[in-house]
Simulated assay, not measured.
Amino acid sequence: MSIKKKLGLGIASAALGISLVGGGTFAYFSDTEVTNSTFAAGTLDLAANPTTIIDVKDIKPGDTMVREFKLENNGSLDIATIDLLTKYTVTDANSNNKDDFGKHIKVLFLENADKTGDGWVIGDYNDVISETTLYDLQNMTPDAVENLNHWLTELLGLGGEDSGLKAGSSDNMYVAFEFVDNEADQNEFQGDSLALEWTFTAHQTEGESK
């Protein structure tokens, strides 16, 4: 056998011996602990009470209508904002109508009384909608639970809730509609009807450390 073969066999035998020794003598302590975690999502549950805010017949130009309703947060999460979207359909009694009935129905105000606080006393109301026709309101998305006068109520100590709607709470809303009398011929609206749909969409607050 050549010298090279003898050296090769010697190196292989030595490596095998080291491997066996290492495998036979290596030992360690161990301990195992199992943890369990859960993640439960909260809920956004917005309700309007009542769901029919107004149902009125036989109105004429100059009539005003005031109604009250509540926005309720029945979920487990606080609500940051509530967007109000307006949609309506008009049923014309006459085929010769040239104008949109929605241009003549005005929201005089939509007042969030809980955000106003003692502002009632000084007449500084929290009107999330003010002097706006239903026609124009279609292109707006006011926040129904925003405190528009937060800086003033805080400065004067008038109270009033912060913007948003906390879980388990509600806001009292007052709304006034007017069939506008434009002091012109409005005979084309006789017998017409308007179905108003207000959609309130709640949005969560920002994420936070838990």
Rank of each mutant, 00 (worst) to 15 (best):
N36K: 11
N36Q: 12
N36C: 09
S37N: 12
S37P: 00
F39T: 15
F39M: 13
F39Y: 15
A41Y: 04
A41K: 11
G42P: 03
T43C: 07
T43F: 02
T43Y: 00
T43V: 05
L44Y: 02
L44W: 02
L44K: 02
L44I: 13
L46I: 05
L46S: 06
A47W: 02
A47N: 15
A47D: 13
A48Q: 12
A48P: 07
A48G: 13
N49I: 01
P50S: 06
T51N: 15
T52M: 05
T52K: 05
I53Q: 04
I53G: 03
I53Y: 04
I53F: 03
I54A: 15
D55S: 14
D55K: 06
V56D: 11
V56K: 13
V56L: 08
K57E: 11
K57C: 04
D58W: 03
I59E: 04
K60V: 12
K60T: 13
P61L: 04
G62Y: 07
G62M: 05
D63K: 06
D63H: 11
T64A: 11
T64V: 05
T64G: 10
M65D: 10
M65P: 00
M65C: 06
V66Q: 14
V66C: 09
R67N: 14
R67F: 13
R67I: 07
E68T: 11
E68D: 09
E68I: 02
F69K: 03
K70G: 05
L71T: 06
L71Y: 06
E72F: 07
E72T: 12
E72M: 12
E72Y: 11
N73T: 08
N74C: 10
N74Y: 11
N74W: 07
N74V: 07
G75Y: 00
L77W: 01
D78W: 00
D78S: 03
I79Q: 02
A80I: 03
A80D: 15
A80N: 14
T81H: 06
T81M: 10
T81Y: 07
I82Q: 11
D83W: 08
L84M: 15
L84R: 12
L85I: 09
L85F: 10
L85V: 09
L85S: 15
L85Y: 09
T86Q: 14
K87T: 14
K87A: 15
K87N: 15
Y88F: 13
Y88H: 08
Y88Q: 08
Y88T: 01
V90Q: 01
V90L: 03
V90F: 01
V90M: 00
T91L: 06
T91E: 14
T91C: 05
T91M: 04
T91F: 08
D92V: 00
D92S: 11
A93V: 04
A93R: 03
A93F: 01
N94S: 10
N94T: 01
S95T: 09
S95D: 15
S95C: 02
N96L: 07
N96P: 06
N97Y: 05
N97A: 07
N97H: 00
N97P: 01
K98S: 12
D100T: 00
D100K: 00
D100S: 04
F101E: 00
G102S: 10
G102V: 01
G102H: 04
G102R: 01
K103R: 11
K103C: 05
K103H: 10
